[in-house]
């Protein structure tokens, strides 16, 4: 599904990613953990194609295709979804209208007609039930005046609507109380299949109790310094990141 080779990226003069190697297969859940400033969100943004970051070395492949010259919107059309750590507000544009536009733009890119209104409504009903979202919420302006939890739940709702191949959840657990966390995690679990993959970026082990990863990677100073199974996450919870930082120095 996703293959990253020796990826280096910088913003302005600052090198943030310093040689990332990562392979994610269909059906897998990967967790990327690491201290603040280790490059987790940058990695997510680079996979999504944010132009602010300059790739100085290495490649990102999606299903064998090099994404080098692919625009963010085309990456989205190919099935990459990023759940933002800080979702932006778009005043005056309802969640429904935003989703309708997003879905139809993707369909247009694939040479399909707009989704008929009837099917769209059905899809919205289905997915909002899955994430226990009040329908009234969908007519509100996108993220405007949403609580932290509502914003994150809205991100996962969008993921459900767009049915991506590769979903990257960037600190989706931050700002969520325990009930919201459970709802969001349940949603992600229900959407998981053998054909798609999920990358969960998080500081804490808490979310991984609900979304159980097949692999855990620790990112430090722009590199993956350790990979393992879900037990690694527990170990990190217990010992913190410092032992790894020391280990890499050695």
């Amino acid at each position: 599904m996703l293959k990253i080779n020796n990826l280096h990226a910088r913003v302005e003069d600052k090198e943030i990613l310093k040689g990332i190697n990562l392979t994610v297969n269909a059906g897998e859940v990967h967790a990327i953990m690491g201290p603040n400033g280790s490059g987790k969100s940058t990695l997510a943004a680079v996979i999504a194609g944010k132009e602010e970051f300059e790739i100085t070395k290495g490649e990102v492949f999606l299903e064998g295709e090099n994404l080098e010259d692919t625009s963010p919107e085309d990456r989205a059309h190919k099935g990459i979804f990023l759940s933002f750590q800080y979702p932006v507000e778009i005043p005056g544009v309802s969640v429904t209208n935003f989703m309708k536009t997003a879905i139809n733009e993707s369909r247009k890119a694939k040479g399909l007609e707009d989704m008929p209104a009837k099917d769209m409504l059905k899809l919205i009903r289905e997915k909002s039930e899955l994430l226990e979202i009040d329908r009234k919420f969908l007519s509100r302006s996108l993220n405007e005046g949403f609580s932290g939890g509502e914003k994150k739940r809205n991100e996962i709702f969008q993921m459900a609507m767009l049915e991506p191949k590769l979903a990257i959840l960037d600190e989706t657990d931050s700002g969520l109380d325990i009930d919201a966390l459970r709802i969001v995690a349940n949603g992600v679990n229900k959407l998981k299949s053998k054909d798609n993959a999920v990358i969960v970026i998080t500081h804490y082990q808490r979310l991984l109790e609900y979304i159980v990863p097949d692999f855990v990677h620790v990112l430090h100073n722009g590199k993956i310094v350790k990979s393992g199974t879900k037990d690694l996450a527990l170990e990190l919870e217990e010992k913190g990141y410092d032992w790894l930082k020391q280990e890499t120095v050695i």
């Binding site: 999504a48 194609g49 944010k50 625009s71 963010p72 919107e73 990456r75 989205a76 059309h77 979804f81 990023l82 933002f84 979702p87 932006v88 778009i90 935003f98 536009t101 997003a102 879905i103 733009e105 993707s106 890119a109 969008q158 767009l162």
Partner: peptide
């Protein structure tokens, strides 16, 4: 960028 990421061009 948020819109781009959802498949909506600039």
């Amino acid at each position: 960028f948020y819109c781009n990421q959802r498949g909506i061009n600039t």
